[in-house]
Design a protein around this nucleic acid. Structure first.
Lengths: 333, 333
DNA sequence: TTCGATCGTCGAAGCGCTTCGACGTCATGC
DNA sequence: GCATGACGTCGAAGCGCTTCGACGATCGAA
C-alpha cells in the first residue's frame, strides 16, 4: 500500500504539504501542487479511508435505507438507487445499502460508528418510526417521501397530491363524471405509506371540487388479477368512464383486461396513470400519465443531503411539480 | 461521541482491556468482561469505524458491484441484493453498492482506499473486463456467475447449463420433438453474459443428445412484444410443441399470447421456465420451472467471501444444482 | 527602507482504535 | 517452598491521515 509519506518523499515535500495540496485547504504553490499530483499519479496513491476518517475527516459515504417492503414496485426503487449511487459518486461519495430489518437499527449503527456522513430514506410512512431518530441533530438525512409532520426534517418527493389533482383535473376537463382510482397494493396503505396517502388525498380533493363520483381500489400487484379487478370495477360502477392507475405492474394488464371486456381505451374508458414515462408508452395504447421521476428524485435527494453536509440550509420540503403528458388513452367523455 | 476511553473509565479498566474484552483476542476475566459490557451498554458505545480500520482492523464492509445493465431483470437483482445485505449483516458486515459506470474504477477504488474487505460481482460476462483485477492477490472477491475461465477466481451460480439440460430432458421425456428456447434480451447475449451462455449451451447439448429440433430466440423484455413473438414462433416452427422460457417479464404474456393464438397450454404447447418460484405460479397456468434461487445465491456468495476473508480455502466454482418443479404447463406430447 | 501581512511549507500533535511487550498474581508441580 | 507458566491487565506505540501552530520568504504600503 502506498501512503502519504511515499508521495511526500517522491514529491520532495512533507506529508502535510501533500495533504494540503490534495485537499486545497491551504494555499500551495502551483509548482509544488503539480509535483504532488504527479507523484500521486505515478504511485497510484489513494488515501486510506479509515485513516482519513479517524483523523477527523468524513468517510464520504451515504447510507441508503431502502427497505424492500411488500407492495413496492422494485424497478422504481432500483432506478432510484442507481441514480442515488451515480449522483453520490459525482460528489465523491459511496453508498451503503441498508435494507429491511436493518432499517431502524442500521441507521443508528451507521451513524454511531461514524461510517456514514448522512442518510437517505425511502418508503417513508406518514408516521414513520424512523423519524424521531432523524430529528436529532447530528444525523443529517433526507427523506424521499413526505411524512405527516415534516418539521425539522428534509424531504423530497414528487408532489403526489398535486399529481392526483392533475389526473382528476385532466379527466374532469374532458367531461368525465365517474372516475376510479386504482392504487397501490393494500399493504402500502396499511402501513400509511406517504406517497399513496398524498395521491389519494389529491385525487379526492380534486374530485370533490369537480363534483365527480369516485371510487378507490387498492390494486394487487399481480398482473393476473387484472381481469378480475376490471370486471369488478365495471360491475360496481357501471357509469365509469375514466380511471387513474397508480400501480405499475397492473397498468398494461388492466388496459388489456378492459378491452377484453369490450371497452375500448380511450373511446369508452379514459385512463391516466402515474408511472415512469417509459412504462406509460409500453401498453398497446400509450397512456396519458404523470411521470414518476425516479432518477430526478434520487439526484435531488443526494444533492439536498450534500448541501446539508456542507452546512448550507435547505428547505424542509421539496416537492417536484407533476408533469402530465397527454398520450392516447384519454378522450372527451 | 462516546469513545473507548469513556468505557474504560466507567468500567475501571484501561482502554486496551476494553478492546480485548470486546474482541476476545486475549483472555479477560469474567468479572471484568461483564463490567466492560455493562459500561458499553450504559454508554451506548460503538467503536469508531474509521479509527478501527486505521488501526489495522478491517472495515467490515463488502462491496456489491451490481451494474444495472439493459436487459437484466431488476426484481431478481434486487432480491439478490437484499439477500446479500441480510447475510452480510449476519456476519456483521455492511454492503457498499456500486453500479454501472462504477464497475471497473469503483472496484479498485474501494479496495485501494481500504474501505471494503471484499467484492461481490454480479452480471458476470464470459470474458468480463473486471476479471484481471480480481485475480490479483489482495482483492478477495466472489463472482455471482461463472466466466469462461474461472481459474484463480471464486464463482457461484445456479448451474445454468444443467438447468438448460433439465428443461430439455423433461420435455424430451414427455415426447416433445420440436422445442424453442426464448431467452434473455439480445443485449444480454451481445455482452456474452455468462448465465445466458451456459443456459443456451445446456439447452443445445441436451437437445442434440435427444435429437430434438430446436430454435433459439432472444426475447425483448417488453411484455407488449409477446404476441408478435408468439406469432412468429408458430409461423416459423409449425411443428413446435414445447418451449423453454428464460425471460421473466415475458413468461406470463407469452403464455397468454399463445392461448390467444388458439394454443392451449399445456394441451397444445408445453412450457417450462427458468425463473423465481413465485413468478412461476403467477400465470394462469402454473408453469413447470427450474427455480432461480436469487436468495440462496446471495447468501452463498457472501458466505464464500466471508470464508475467504478468514483465510479458509474455498472451491473455485460452486454450482447450485437446478431444481425442476413440475406444475401444470407441461404434458406428454 | 522598514514593517506588517500574506504565502507556502514544515514538524508535531492527535484522531480513536488495536496490538505488542511487560508485569504482577495466582495456581500448579516438584 | 520455589520455580514455572498461564492468566489478566496495563502502558506505550503506532495505524495513515489531517490539522494546528510556527516560521522563513516574499511583497506591498508607508
Amino acid at each position: 500500500m502506498v501512503k502519504i509519506t511515499d508521495v511526500a518523499r517522491r514529491a520532495g515535500v512533507s506529508p502535510s504539504t501533500v495533504s494540503y495540496a490534495l485537499s486545497g485547504k491551504r494555499p500551495i504553490s502551483d509548482a509544488t501542487r503539480r509535483r504532488v499530483e504527479a507523484a500521486v499519479r505515478d504511485l497510484g496513491y489513494r488515501p486510506h479511508g479509515g485513516a482519513r476518517t479517524a483523523a477527523g475527516g468524513r468517510p464520504n459515504v451515504l447510507a441508503l435505507a431502502a427497505p424492500l417492503r411488500p407492495g413496492v414496485h422494485v424497478p422504481v426503487v432500483m432506478r432510484l438507487a442507481e441514480s442515488v449511487v451515480t449522483t453520490a459518486r459525482a460528489h465523491d461519495h459511496d453508498v451503503l445499502l441498508l435494507t429491511r430489518a436493518e432499517a431502524e437499527e442500521g441507521l443508528s449503527r451507521a451513524l454511531a460508528t461514524a461510517s456514514v456522513d448522512g442518510l437517505l430514506l425511502t418508503d417513508v410512512g406518514l408516521h414513520d418510526p424512523r423519524l424521531p431518530r432523524l430529528r436529532f441533530p447530528g444525523s443529517p438525512s433526507v427523506l424521499i417521501g413526505v411524512p405527516a409532520n415534516p418539521q425539522g426534517l428534509t424531504c423530497v418527493d414528487l408532489d403526489f397530491r398535486a399529481a392526483g389533482e392533475a389526473c382528476v383535473n385532466h379527466l374532469a376537463g374532458l367531461g368525465h363524471h365517474t372516475v376510479a382510482l386504482v392504487g397501490s397494493p393494500p399493504e402500502v396503505y396499511l402501513r400509511e405509506t406517504a406517497y399513496a396517502h398524498h395521491l389519494m388525498q389529491g385525487f379526492a380533493t380534486a374530485a370533490a371540487r369537480h363534483g365527480l363520483t369516485t371510487s378507490v381500489h387498492p390494486g394487487d400487484p399481480d398482473p393476473a388479477t387484472a381481469p378480475r379487478l376490471a370486471e369488478r370495477l365495471l360491475r360496481e360502477h357501471p357509469a365509469l368512464t375514466a380511471a387513474v392507475i397508480h400501480n405499475e405492474p397492473l397498468l398494461g394488464p388492466l388496459i388489456t383486461a378492459f378491452e377484453h371486456l369490450g371497452l375500448r381505451v380511450p373511446a369508452d374508458l379514459s385512463v391516466t396513470a402515474l408511472c415512469p414515462d417509459d412504462l406509460a408508452v409500453t401498453p398497446r395504447v400509450p397512456v396519458t400519465s404523470v411521470s414518476l421521476p425516479a432518477d430526478e428524485l434520487g439526484t435531488r435527494a443526494v444533492e439536498l443531503l450534500m448541501r446539508k453536509l456542507h452546512g448550507v440550509p435547505v428547505p424542509e420540503t421539496t416537492l417536484l411539480p407533476p408533469r402530465l403528458t397527454e398520450r392516447s388513452s384519454t378522450r372527451r367523455a
